[in-house]
Design a binder for these strands. Structure first.
Length: 639
RNA sequence: GCUCACGUAGCUCAGUAGGUAGAGCACUUCCUUGGUAAGGAAGAGGUCACCAGUUCGAUCCUGGUCGUGAGCUCCA
């Protein structure tokens, strides 16, 4: 065979014999240190196993263990190994479906009559370890689609046959390790011994191909890393996330509750949570006032006819609560605030001179969610949107978007979120509005993002049917992403409600409408905040800033005086005058994550001072009550 | 909604070859007046989620309902 020219990215090419395997090529091209980290290579579009022969010259892009892709390869292989273990353990009456790598691990779906139990974990894990110890090579074979269909049909693997029927290519690949054979594009690790750090995480049901009309399969989730330390880090992070779970902290800190009395997905804000929410709302309102918004209030129900006009009955009924009859008229609990704001817009004729009109509302909406979807504060049936609608001229669109992004990032920053993923969603298949408008609006969103210098990803076709949108997913302190902010251009509602304004030409035109929410849902955002701060809120939004702790009953009167003085100075303060030891009181205040403990004993009483213990356990120098109040005021200022 | 698991005092959890229950914390009272993460004692508190069935008898077994969790689906 002839020679071919191969090189790795950025290096000089070498002449090597055609038909050489990837492993041999890598050996020839890379240092031994580099070589150890390589698990596959990318040649053009394709990822290649180490064992694949190279017949054409070109540039090989190394896929290393420390890359995302390299990790995905390991995890994908891990799913095959787990499937092998399961098939070997639970016999021939089990069918395998699919087993890809995911964001933080992998899964494999099985069709098996008996449910897996946590006890099976042990068995599967130890079987996996045996397979790993056996260092079985992953071998790749290619065959025609027809051959593959025949092969899997004979094995009774009907899911694989179905997959094959949907594949268009005439040649497919299968991978074999030991006696386990799976339809797979690859690539895979060289042999099973590379799987050194793995763990089964959980069992769950999953529909075949995500379709609830099709059979429910059993999905085993696991995760894998090249390095045991990485696995430990991941498991520790899961542990940490569990500690921060807003449902757990919400209960412990008495922030919110969900009661059987009231119903699932409906949030009861307890005094401390309600206070934190008020502080968030006040901040939000102030910030909006400063940015030229006007505040609105609108009701929770409206005539069903309105929802017919708005189009919600056509495209949103499944997410709405059932209607109610009032004096023979049908009313509807609101799933969105927009039509109400339109009701206010339509109170009189509007002039272009008024634009942009910026109206905001903390509007509580109700959406029907299937019981299985509900989750703490994160997914509920009644929630408050920090909503706003901006009515503007086409030429104002870009600047308005820019201003919204600006305000958005500013507010997120105040809550400690400075990292985000930004997505621009473009026109979906089903849409309303003219192509020209879509293009203009998408362009305006894009320009605003670029002017702001925000890196973003385009989500083609993911826009809402009525207009393109920007979504901002914030990253919390554990690096988890939460979708909160959304900015959407709407061509639909102005048309449906026949909105107009008189332009310079004294003719009627249709305004552009922007919907946007920054925190998204106050409930969910609060949930994210609880987890982000692990319940230890910053001073400005913590419900209790300080707690007065007296040492003995001898200081009861002084403690009361200090407490009153702080309260009058605007400090959110509590007074713990119970007949308990200081240690005990400190422990409780600490667990309640109160930023400052104000300790008053005889020493303080005699000198008219307080000793302040911080949440981090450090003591401040004794100071006057006035000085402490001033310190709190200073530190509570939002920058 | 679907699959699996779970549902015992305010909270965290024990428990019972099926004979109507227990701990720690919290709560109340008393003793103690103690300087930086739990002082001691006593008391009160539960139709063991709800409804049916099996049984002489069910918190425990069976079925259903409701709720919770993990996913699927969906999304603020």
């Amino acid at each position: 065979m002839a020679d071919i020219q191969l090189s790795t990215a950025g290096e000089e090419s070498k002449t090597l014999p055609a038909g050489i395997t990837v492993a041999e090529a890598v050996k020839a091209l890379c240092s031994s240190k580099e070589r150890k980290k390589v698990v596959a290579v990318r040649a053009g579009e394709r990822l290649l196993d180490m064992s694949e022969p190279l017949t054409e010259g070109g540039v090989l892009e190394l896929v290393t263990k420390d890359s995302r892709e390299g990790l995905n390869i390991l995890r994908h292989s891990a799913s095959h190994i787990m499937a092998q273990a399961v098939v070997e353990l639970y016999g021939p009456d089990i069918k395998v479906a699919i087993g890809p790598a995911t964001e933080d691990g992998f899964y494999y779906d099985f069709d098996r009559k008996e449910p897996f139990t946590p006890d099976d974990f042990e068995a599967v894990e130890s079987r996996v370890r045996e397979i790993v110890a056996a260092a079985l090579p992953f071998s790749r074979e290619t065959l025609s689609r027809a051959e593959a269909i025949k092969f899997f049909q004979e094995k009774g693997e009907s899911y694989k046959v179905e997959l094959l029927n949907d594949i268009e290519a005439e040649t497919v690949s299968i991978y074999r390790q030991g006696d386990f054979v799976d339809l797979c594009r690859g690539p895979h690790i060289v042999n099973t011994s590379l799987l050194q750090a793995f763990k089964l995480i959980r069992i769950a049901g999953a529909y075949w191909r995500g379709d609830e009309k099709r059979p429910m399969l059993q999905r085993l989730y696991g995760t894998a890393f090249y390095d045991a330390k990485e696995l430990k880090k991941y498991l520790d992070q899961l542990e940490e996330a569990k500690k921060r779970d807003h449902r757990k902290l919400g209960k412990e800190l008495e922030l919110f509750t969900i009661s059987d009395l009231v119903g699932p997905g409906l949030i009861l804000w307890q005094p401390k949570g309600a206070l934190a929410r008020r502080l968030i709302e006040d901040y939000w309102k102030d910030e909006h006032y400063r940015n030229g918004y006007e505040l609105l209030y609108t009701p929770h129900i409206a005539k069903r006819d309105m929802w017919a006009t708005s189009g919600h009955l056509d495209f949103y009924v499944n997410d709405m609560f059932s209607p109610m009859e009032v004096e023979d008229v049908s009313y509807q609990l609101k799933p969105m605030n927009c039509p109400f704001h339109i009701g206010i817009y339509k109170t009189r004729k509007r002039s272009y001179r008024e634009f942009p009109i910026r109206w905001c509302e903390l509007g509580t909406v109700y959406r029907f969610e299937r019981t299985g979807a509900l989750q703490g504060l994160m997914r509920v049936r009644g929630f408050t949107q920090d909503d706003a609608h901006i009515f503007c001229l086409p030429e104002q669109l870009e600047e308005e978007i820019f201003n919204i992004i600006d305000l958005n990032l500013h507010i997120l920053k105040t809550f400690g979120f400075t990292e985000y993923d930004v997505y621009l969603s473009t026109r979906p298949e089903k849409y309303v509005g003219s192509d020209e408008n879509w293009q203009k609006a998408t362009e305006a969103l894009k320009m605003a993002l670029e002017k702001k210098g925000l890196p973003y990803q385009v989500d083609p076709g993911e826009g809402v049917f009525y207009g393109p949108k920007i979504d901002i997913k914030i990253k919390d302190v554990l690096g988890r992403a939460w979708q909160c902010s959304t900015i959407q251009v709407d061509f639909n509602l102005p048309e449906r409600f026949q909105l107009g304004y008189t332009a310079e030409d004294s003719k009627e035109h249709q305004p552009i409408m922007i919907h946007r929410a920054l925190m998204g849902s106050l409930e969910r955002f609060f949930g994210v905040l609880i987890e982000h701060y692990a319940g230890a809120f910053p001073l400005w939004m913590t419900p209790v800033q300080a707690k007065v702790l007296n040492i003995t009953d001898a200081q009861l009167d002084y403690a009361e005086k200090v407490f009153q003085q702080l309260r009058m100075a605007g400090v959110r303060v509590e007074n713990d005058t119970r007949n308990e030891k200081l240690n005990y009181k400190i422990r409780e205040a600490q667990l309640a994550k109160i930023p400052y403990m104000v300790i008053v004993g005889d020493k303080e009483k005699d000198t008219d001072t307080v000793t302040v213990r911080q949440r981090d356990g450090k003591n401040l120098e004794p100071m006057s009550v006035a000085a402490f109040a001033e310190m709190i005021r200073e530190q509570s200022r939002i920058r």
